[in-house]
């Protein structure tokens, strides 16, 4: 899941969270999660003053952001001392799977 400005949203991306009017979670949801964005939907959201949306995966690359490989490398480093322990080894696998899923790798 990634939070991106609506400006960078493209048709085909999938909403990971409900979108609320004026970005405030108090009001009415105007678009449910799991909706596939289309150009006209993005224009409508823009007209309703929505500025950011949460989308599935990691479709937008910002400058200075780390790639999946880099993230995996630092995960390996963090687990360097404890990975041989059964519980930590399980946790490592869970995090690795999570990273792969969230980065769309």
């Amino acid at each position: 899941m990634q939070k991106i400005p609506l400006m960078l949203a493209k048709a085909g991306m999938v909403l990971a969270r409900d979108v609320f009017r004026g970005d405030s979670p108090v009001g009415m949801p105007i678009c449910g999660k799991d909706t596939v964005l289309t150009d006209s939907l993005i224009t409508r959201l823009d007209q309703m003053d929505v500025q950011t949306v949460y989308v599935d995966g990691h479709p937008v690359w910002e400058e200075g952001e780390r790639t999946f490989d880099e993230l995996l490398q630092s995960l390996d480093m963090r687990f360097e001392k404890s990975r041989q322990e059964p519980l930590n080894s399980m946790l490592y696998d869970i995090y690795k799977a999570y990273l792969a899923k969230s980065m769309g790798a």
Binding site: R78, K81, L87, Y95
Partner: peptide, 24 residues
């Protein structure tokens, strides 16, 4: 342990501590 595994923030520790069986 989970937050150290996630790498969120900086506790000053480089390594994830061993998750204790007794807590589990």
């Amino acid at each position: 342990v989970l937050i150290k595994a996630s790498g969120f923030g900086n506790s000053g520790d480089r390594y994830v501590p061993v998750m204790q069986q007794i807590a589990w």
